[in-house]
Design a protein around this nucleic acid. Sequence first.
DNA 1: CGAAATTAATAGCCTTTATCTATCGCGGGA
DNA 2: TCCCGCGATAGATAAAGGCTATTAATTTCG
Lengths: 295, 295
Amino acid sequence: MIDKLEFLLALAREKHFGRAADACGVTQPTLSAGVKHLEEQMGVLLVKRGSRFQGFTPEGDRVLEWARRIVGDSRAMREDISALRHGLSGRLRIAAIPTALAMVATITTPYRDKHPNVQFTIYSRTSLEILELLENLEIDAGITYIGNEPIGRVSIVPLYQEHYRLVTSADAPLGDRESVTWAEVSQVPLCLLTPDMQNRRIINRLLKSAGGESRPTLESDSMILLFSHVRTGRWASVMPEKIAQTLGLTEPIRAIPILQPDAVQTIGLVVPQREPMTPTTAALVNEARRIAPSL
Amino acid sequence: MIDKLEFLLALAREKHFGRAADACGVTQPTLSAGVKHLEEQMGVLLVKRGSRFQGFTPEGDRVLEWARRIVGDSRAMREDISALRHGLSGRLRIAAIPTALAMVATITTPYRDKHPNVQFTIYSRTSLEILELLENLEIDAGITYIGNEPIGRVSIVPLYQEHYRLVTSADAPLGDRESVTWAEVSQVPLCLLTPDMQNRRIINRLLKSAGGESRPTLESDSMILLFSHVRTGRWASVMPEKIAQTLGLTEPIRAIPILQPDAVQTIGLVVPQREPMTPTTAALVNEARRIAPSL
DNA sequence: CGAAATTAATAGCCTTTATCTATCGCGGGA
DNA sequence: TCCCGCGATAGATAAAGGCTATTAATTTCG
């Protein structure tokens, strides 16, 4: 029964019977039969079928919600019992927005000291993808923007505020300033994240409201790429204070506060709302609460 | 998988492999195998076994908690989907303490007007039994004392206050009074509920703290039995105001307020804490909220 | 417009799992 | 000590679940 619900979850993720079957480690006919079996049990079609997958019926969507919960709880149960016996162990899957990646180590490091048998998998994803991954039980926790739109069934631990800095060489234009304005920044060619990232959209918005335009000379979805360009001293970027600090910029690179406005975004840890949480996730939340004040 | 968890729930209820198997509609070896299979999956013994059932291991208790949730959710899912298609239908299982039985009709009647396809099963149970039944998913809602001890994972809707009255014939001792005290009541031979009922224990406590003693001439676990005795005019009882009103006492029987103290107990609807609730239960909660002010 | 490719359903077969009946063996209580 | 109740075990059988191969229905593309 629970396996069938997992089939349905995979189908929702992949929107394709064949790929969903692969993801579940079964063949396509098996997954088809599983879904059909669910439909018989419920007495109602769950999937809109033409000759290909066309989404779920309203009933299907509802079953999907329940499936997320039931499958999530059944995994949580296993982990819970395993933790009772062997202490915390297993794999903690976390996804973070690129600008938060550098601070993940401040959580994982003390966590690992306390629970050495837990392994980590950490993905770099956009904020939207993170919510989707959480929804689909593909990750255990996300680190992303919070406080904007209300986000599904999750618990939230605020971590820190994102203040922005112009990162540039001391001998470049504006390089000698103690602070700059968004209007001034908008005149500089920048290296920025790609527009599918919320960070880029936030920066775009800030530049625009300062009367400027974002004219990035270089875009990437990788902070490491941006950072390595900036380090040459020949490129400039706008980065959150936190990541600029963490990555350790050295002379002649400077990270200059951008004021007017000193825009802030709150970054936080989000985990599935489940009572009780899985032990590994609960420990992560504790760790986040513990270190949040020092960030 | 879910079936196996149901086995475990049945075993917790029945504390006996054979009876649990019966309750699940399978044979004893099937249930044994199911439990053993769970134990293999979890990698840990769940049931303490001698030559007979000896309770659960700590891990077993934990699995049991998860099982309650998972099984509950899976039933809720089915009901939810069925309600999407056919409107509210199915059977709503309610248990109420005896003194609240008479007021159940004030909820069920308007409920039935709105949702004629829902059938009711209503049990008369002690307050302790009600909590246990809720816990084990054997009822969908309970009507019982609230606000005393914190009670498990349930949502609560307060319904009304229980004020006590001396129910007696006008020509009996105290029968002509406008109000009486608990001290006075303690002198009268009474028909009361049996001591396993919380109502009786409450009354005992009140009588005792007024310096008296409860000396019931007649005990029963049935309000109907008490009521029919009182109606003869030859017996007296202490009953909640609500039930005395509802059952319609006629001359020469009087229901005299008992003061000093005018003790109150709050009665409420309790339902499993589940988000979202099953549709039938959600409707019941709505109904309870609606009528509570008028009680 | 027709051939090829894609996608999900179906058919037929086999393996695994689930369940039943019958029986055994351990303990507790008379 | 002797039952008797209880749960585990054995063996047989039914049911479910899964796989490969194929079909049917669209879609895509030449």
